[in-house]
């Protein structure tokens, strides 16, 4: 066999495995999505849920529960999980750090402060109610992202600078948040604490549409960088030698991630752990070819968040726990499993 024929066979086999893993992820997410729709305090049977989805519900309340509560929540879970999983994979790749997550960049702290600011102060804004909080949280997170990228740019986008700048931003906004909490009225304080827990209960179709747009812009933009991101996994110098321009690449990728994370956190609050664990799960499935890793990490994020969402309704029957509490409980077993199956002495 000629070298080209052998190599083509190897390549086909490799692609086949990765496409299969991606399809598996997609099927798992679809399954959890359906289970999520069927879970909740209202105890609807699968038949009732299906009938409501098809517009044939016997009772209007069933239709309202499915269309106005469960479906928007499930879709928000899907989108936020995908955004956090995708962002986590990119952050871990560009910072060459398996412990990094979207929150390493300090943006969650900034969004939390923004939300608290909107809750405590009566800011003159063109939007009212819940969307005010989302808008201010998003804007403050974007401001923090701008600060982070500016600091990173001053030092050629070096990873250690970005990690330190992210930490500084996180502590800065945490301190400002504490100050607001200290000054807030008891009612506002309760509202802030609930917001910080992270929850899908604030879901609405308008929010879902906005987040879907953010994701559908950011994912192709990041996929366009996929080969350069894969090259970055070979180390800074080799990536530079291959023409990946690591500094510029890192800043561009982080700009997209900041945008996505800011949107996800602004809509759903601080939901930890998904952005950390989902990329590891995806990596175990498809390896480091970022053309496959990025979409798989998005699927893994959606999978984890939907699993947490189901657990949040199943643990205490008749009530819904804030999902931010559940993601860690659901994510820890996955993380431990990955730690235990990794052969010792290998690079992360």
């Amino acid at each position: 066999m000629s070298p080209a024929a052998t190599v083509e066979g190897v390549w086909r086999a490799l692609l086949g495995r990765r496409v299969a893993a991606l399809a598996l992820g997609l099927a798992a997410v679809a399954l959890l999505f359906v289970i999520d729709l069927g879970t909740g305090p209202a105890r609807l049977s699968p038949g009732e849920v299906a009938a409501a989805l098809l517009g044939r519900a016997f009772e209007p309340t069933t239709s309202a529960i499915v269309w106005s509560i469960r479906l928007p929540m499930a879709v928000l879970g899907l989108l936020v999980g995908a955004a956090l999983g995708l962002s986590g994979a990119v952050v871990q790749t560009v910072l060459a750090n398996p412990l990094a997550s979207p929150y390493t960049l300090g943006l969650a702290g900034a969004a939390g402060f923004g939300a608290a600011l909107a809750i405590v102060l009566d800011l003159p804004l063109p939007v009212a109610g819940e969307l005010r909080i989302v808008l201010v949280a998003f804007l403050v997170a974007l401001f923090a992202a701008g600060l982070l990228l500016l600091l990173g740019r001053l030092r050629d986008g070096r990873p250690e600078v970005i990690v330190l700048a992210g930490l500084a931003i996180l502590f800065l906004f945490q301190a400002l948040l504490s100050l607001l909490q200290y000054l807030a009225t008891p009612e506002a304080l309760a509202q802030i604490v609930f917001w910080l827990f992270g929850s899908l209960a604030r879901a609405s179709w308008s929010k879902n549409a906005l987040l879907a747009v953010a994701l559908s812009v950011a994912l192709p933009a990041l996929l366009r960088l996929a080969w350069r991101l894969s090259a970055l996994r070979l180390g800074e110098e080799r990536a530079a030698a291959l023409g990946a321009r690591p500094g510029a690449l890192r800043l561009e990728a982080l700009a997209w991630v900041s945008f996505l994370t800011a949107a996800a956190v602004a809509f759903a609050g601080t939901i930890g752990f998904v952005g950390l664990v989902a990329p590891h799960l995806a990596r175990a499935l498809v390896g480091e070819d970022q053309r496959f890793l990025l979409p798989t990490a998005a699927l893994a994020g959606a999978f984890l968040l939907l699993a947490a969402s189901i657990a949040s309704r199943a643990i205490v029957p008749g009530s819904i726990l804030p999902i931010g509490i559940l993601t860690a409980l659901v994510g820890v077993p996955f993380l431990l499993g990955l730690v235990l199956r990794r052969p010792s002495g290998s690079r992360p």
Binding site: A226, S230, A231, R233, G235, G243, E288, D289, S346, R347
Partner: peptide
């Protein structure tokens, strides 16, 4: 070709070699 020879987990030899064509690779 820099001196460092480390390779990350999760990339096959073929992918490592393909990355040599980074500037010309389409998606």
């Amino acid at each position: 070709v820099p001196q460092e020879t480390a390779a990350p987990r999760g990339l096959s030899l073929l992918e490592i070699v393909l990355l040599g064509r980074l500037g010309r690779l389409g998606f």
